[in-house]
Design a protein around this nucleic acid. Structure first.
Lengths: 229, 229
DNA sequence: GCAAAAGTGTTTGGTCTACACCCATGA
DNA sequence: TCATGGGTGTAGACCAAACACTTTTGC
C-alpha cells in the first residue's frame, strides 16, 4: 500500500441528515420535510444535504440546519454514521446523522411553508424514507441519555420558562410523569436556575414564576456529575 | 435538485480507524501500529482501512480488526465520524472511528510482530498521526460512560476472572481506587456473576475465586438501569 | 365562590460511604 | 511463622420516593 492507494481509492458520497427536536409545551416533536426530489419525492424525510469537499460534517450540518430554520447557533451534536450499502435506493451514500434542539416557537411559519416542513409527534411519525426512522429512534435514545446529565433541555424552551414547563418537557422526553414537589426540589437544589420576578399568566390564573438557566453557575458544577432527571 | 445530483455529487474517501483497548491486569492499554506506508510512514497510528463500495462501516471495522488481531466477534462500537477537511495530510478522507475491547492475553505475539503493533498505556501514548490522539481520548470517554452502565468490562478480561481482577480493571478505567468491600457488595448484589469452585492462585497464596459473567441473568435486568460502577 | 394550576415539607426506606480485621496459604 | 493478598460486616450520612393540602386569581 502506498500513497496512490489514497488518491485512487473508491470514493463515496457522504451526506448529513438532521433530526430536529422541538417541544410545543406538551409533546416532543421532530421536524420533517416533504422530500422535493427523486428518489422518493413527496415522501416524508429528514432534512439533509451532501458534504462538499471543502467542508467538514459539522459545517454541512450547520448549513443544512440553517437552510431549513434560518437559524445559526442551534444546539447540535453528531449522532451516528449510517452506512448500509443499500440504505439509499439511488446509490451508495453514507449519511452522518446529527440531532439538533430548537425552541419550537422560534421556528418561522414561513420556512415551514417554503420547505413543506411539518412537526410530528414522535409517537406518530409518518413513514420515512430510507433508514430515517432508525435515525430518529437513535436520536431519541441519545436525547434521553444526554438530557439527564447535561443542561440541554433548556435549548427546547424559551429563554424564560416556568418550572411546570420544564417539568412537562422532561415528562415528554421520558414519557413518564414526575412528582412536582420532588421535581422542583431537585432542580432548584442544583442552583443553576435564576428566578425572575415575572410570571407567566397564560396557562393558569395564579401564574407561574419564570426562571432562566444560569450557564455561569452551571460551569462550576459541570465536572461533578450533575443529574437533571 | 434531481437524481443526477446524486450520481454527480462530490465523493469522498471514507475510512475506519479502530481504537483497541486491552487490560493487562494493571493498566488499560491501547494497541497501536507503526504505520507501514506514506504519508507519515513509521509513525504510530491507529489501525485503519478504507471503506469499499460493497461494505458498510461496521464490516470495514470488523475486517480491519480481524486483520490486526485474527479475531472475529470482538466487542466493537462506532465512536464518531471525524471529518476535518485537512485531517489527513494526503487528501480528503473522512474517518469513522470505532472502539473495540479485547482480552489482551488472547492477542498473539506473532501478529504483534507482523504488524509492528504495540500496546501503550493510555497515559503514555506516543505522538500519533493526524487526529488519532483525539480519537483515542474520545474513545476513552465513551469507554468510561459505557462501562458504568453496560456489562462490557468483561470483554477486557478472560472468561474466568476474580473479583480483584475486575476491581483493578475498573480502577484502571476510571483512574481511581475503590474500596474492595463496597466493590464486591455492589457487584455481587447485581446477581450477574456466577462463582466457580476454582481459584486463581498465581497472584496470591490464598487464591481468589473465579467468577463468570452470566449474560442470561443480565438480560433480565437490562431494562432496569443497572450500574456497574 | 369556584375552578384550575402553582407552590410547598415531612417521613421513610434504601443506597452509598467510610472504615479494619481475620483468613488461607506457600514459602 | 510470617508475608501476602483475599474476603467480609456495620453504622451513619445522604438521597430518592411517596405522599396532600394550601394559595392565588380570573371568571
Amino acid at each position: 500500500m502506498d500513497i496512490d492507494s489514497y488518491t485512487n481509492h473508491q470514493k463515496i458520497i457522504v451526506a448529513v441528515d438532521c433530526i430536529i427536536f422541538g417541544f410545543d409545551g406538551n409533546q416532543l416533536k421532530a421536524l420533517l420535510i416533504k422530500r422535493g426530489f427523486e428518489p422518493q419525492k413527496g415522501k416524508w424525510s429528514l432534512m439533509g444535504g451532501f458534504i462538499n469537499n471543502n467542508e467538514d460534517a459539522d459545517c454541512a450540518a450547520v448549513r443544512v440546519l440553517n437552510k431549513l430554520t434560518g437559524m445559526d447557533n442551534l444546539y447540535m451534536e453528531q449522532l451516528h454514521a449510517f452506512s448500509r450499502v443499500d440504505r439509499d435506493s439511488a446509490g451508495r451514500v453514507i449519511s452522518i446523522a446529527y440531532f439538533a434542539l430548537i425552541n419550537i416557537a422560534d421556528y418561522s411559519e414561513q420556512l415551514q411553508v417554503e420547505h413543506e416542513a411539518k412537526w410530528f409527534e414522535l409517537s406518530q411519525l409518518p413513514e420515512l424514507i430510507f433508514d430515517h426512522t432508525a435515525m430518529v429512534l437513535k436520536a431519541q435514545d441519545l436525547l434521553r441519555e444526554k438530557v439527564a446529565r447535561h443542561p440541554i433541555g433548556f435549548e427546547l424552551l424559551p429563554d424564560k420558562f416556568t418550572l411546570p414547563q420544564l417539568q412537562s418537557l422532561y415528562e415528554a422526553i421520558y414519557e413518564t410523569s414526575l412528582d412536582s414537589r420532588n421535581f422542583s426540589k431537585r432542580i432548584l437544589s442544583l442552583g443553576v436556575l435564576n428566578k425572575l420576578d415575572e410570571k407567566e399568566k397564560k396557562s393558569s390564573r395564579r401564574g407561574a414564576f419564570y426562571y432562566v438557566f444560569d450557564s455561569i453557575k452551571y460551569k462550576n458544577l459541570e465536572a461533578s456529575g450533575v443529574r437533571f432527571v
